[in-house]
Design a protein around this nucleic acid. Sequence first.
RNA 1: GGGCGAUUAGCUCAGCUGGUUCAGAGCACUUGGUUUACACCCAAGGGGUCGGGGGUUCGAACCCCUCAUCGCCCA
Length: 876
Amino acid sequence: MALEAKYNAKSIEDKWYKYWMDNNYFHSEVDERTPYTIVIPPPNVTGVLHMGHMLNNTLQDVLIRRARLKGFNACWVPGTDHASIATEAKVVAKLKADGIDKANLSREEFLEHAWEWTHKHGGIILEQLKKLGASCDWERTKFTMDDNMSASVIKVFVDLYEKGNIYRGYRMVNWDPQAKTTLSDEEVIHEEKQGNLYYLNYKIEGSDETLTIATTRPETILGDTAICINPNDERFTHLKGKKAIVPVCNRVIPIIEDEYVDVEFGTGCLKVTPAHDENDKMLGDKHGLEVIDILNDDGTLNSFGMHYEGKDRFVVRKEIVKELEGMGVVLKIETHMHKVGTSERTGAVIEPKLSDQWFLKMKELAQPALDAVLEKDVKLVPEKFINTYRHWMENVRDWNISRQLLWGQQIPAYFYGDGKEDFVVAENLEAAVEKARTKSGNANLTTSDLTQDPDALDTWFSSWLWPISVFNGILEPDNKEINYYYPTNDLVTAPEILFFWVARMIIAGYEYRGEKPFTNVYLTGIVRDKQRRKMSKSLGNSPDPIKLMDKYGADGVRVGMLLSSPAGNDLMFDEDLCKQGSGFVNKIWNAYRLIDGWEVSETKEETETAGIAVKWYRSKFQKTLAELEDQYSKYRISDALMSTYKLIWDDFCSWFLEMVKPGYQEPISAKTYKEIISILEDNLKVLHPFVPFISEEIWQHISERSANEALIVSKWPASEGFDEQLNAEFDFAAEVVAGIRTIRKEKNISFKDAISMSVINNEKASEGFDVVISKLGNISQLDYISEAIDGALTFRVKSNEYFIPVAGAIDVEEEIAKLSEELKYTEGFLKSVQGKLKNERFVNNAPDQVVAIERKKEADAIAKIEMIKTSLASLK
RNA sequence: GGGCGAUUAGCUCAGCUGGUUCAGAGCACUUGGUUUACACCCAAGGGGUCGGGGGUUCGAACCCCUCAUCGCCCA
């Protein structure tokens, strides 16, 4: 079967992915081997693949494929989460387009639509991951709303409630008026925005005097219930005990005193609106103020908004300023930069709102999870995130886990009366009735007397159990899968969700398994465009990953993603990186085409050059293999890729293949060929995690392989150590070859013309690589001499001098200039080294080894200077 | 406002315990090349006061102080 001249990524990638699937290589079952487990960070079920997923999942696939090659029982569990806010918003929008209003649907009807939507759009992203080559165990695919997964969530909720960790509280929460739900603190993004600071005059009751307050939100004056001054602020002592009148609504409110007020900010008079600001709420509680909520759930004003009722808060802001200006109470308006909380999901400006919500107490639960990271039982990569993690965990706040949504697990709290405490928490209605009877003392309660809390749980309250629940470890804590696969090995995710998800998984791990959920957390960077903007749908600056893979092949894109993404640093994505990736794939392909095209001769002897080439490459390979082990162990995946890239491109293609390449139309010896194939196979193994498709294609083309001989399930090359001396000899020889090439270039000597060369071997360099030098330099004859040759071109490697006699006169002036330049440099170098050695404090204080190195440098430099001077003398 | 981190070649970044991995890599750039796998190629080459200033040390990209700029997290 002849090889196609052009590598056809698309058909080859489809072919091998299907082959891998057909042979079930991705599937893992509990067995006697050591497991190596990764759980995927579940993407949104209705989402589509973006560049962040590409990076993230390429990394996971590299890790899992290498683990598989290393003989671990590799298990990568895929799945999706239900993303309640985002999905519900999409379903609501779809219903609206169909002329259906969510408000007119029952919970059951709405959920039916939501499931329909999920089945229709869900899982697209998982199909897309297959294109990338993701070797997930698809039989284990999970969804956070699967029956078992939901049952796990409910069980955990009940358990935590019974332990006293979950409570219901009337608190100031983050309200998203667009999604009409609360958000946890972590879901609020604080953005610096340009706003205004409005200075408003309030009349003081029973006087003509006014006081001035400064506010960024003039529309909230309708909810004001006090003015607060600092008791130490002498400017306002005369206001103590008086009352102020709120403009527009003419409400009379007390002037209270509290040291909380910052005398520096604004005017030193603070308007207090307990319903709409967390700090004001605190003041309100302390001073027993009235709470007036002026907003509806959708961010419009309610009846307290008077003539603004029904209008949006931002519209009212503009209109009320006009009204206030008309009344002459606006003193001035300053522009003002301030942080505004916005919804992570909808982008809407968050409204602080008082309401009844469910909270999880975090302080105690967080302690083991904090210790685990500080003691490096759970390792964060890179370590710089440990500080961030610690800071968050030490100041952790209670987690608001309820959401005013339908799509998600409904909170298992059942109300049987009107009192605030008239509820029970139970796994199902039947159990709830039992508990309600006991708690209320009313034995006649029936299921119809109970009403379940309409709210759903935060999606993260599902995903924090993910590493446990995917193995059913909540419902059956002692099943063989959870005991085998848990704790998992690596988690690969974005730093953005360190708190949302990673920290909470660690918390859940210790609470429900008494053990960490994973050993290593590899935090990737954020994929940005060349202008450092985060890639996003709204900016339209993100390439379509599927199109990228069509254009450059999945292997090419994988390499492109990894080329420049050190852990924790953002990746400035550039399509050129994928081009470079596909260039690499092309290089691998053509190297194989070369080898595959050789005619093999059983009778031909192995050449001396090929013999040394094989010996050297094996040693070089081992050296790189050791580097790879080190890089993988530190999760320096892009370094590992670069080491592999250079091994293949430079060492294998540019040096090794050129060394073993037979002459034109000559066959290659069977012995050499066998060695080359064996070397190639080792190359393919270290390439496989990065470029799984082309490596499998070549592997399978080399010879017929049975199903259990596929590359994906082969064995990672064994570490056998390497010959440092041999590698150094090669490096020296390579410098000589480079010297010859430079001379050829400078003197326009075609590579086709063989030349002879002589050497004064001051370095006593090994002659082992002479055949290599001769072949790669096209040297017809290589002589060892002791006296310089007049009228020859020269170059030097260390203190060795090489002479290439050429027909015709050489440019003596040019040679002298070149030598003088080298002399000057070397003398300067010698001077600096001797300066060091003359310094007694250096000689006395520096380690012996360092001093010895400097003495060696000195000796080498002196030898080289001698040689150059001799050459110069002979030229003059 | 509090905390964390960064600043090294045109770009993206390595540089571990202060000294041979010490000023590096890849890309880009320049020059030359139709050598029997590859122009998605081959070969050679240029390019950096390691953000500024000060200090410690025999010795600093690396440690300390300070200033500047940028980024992230949390209020």
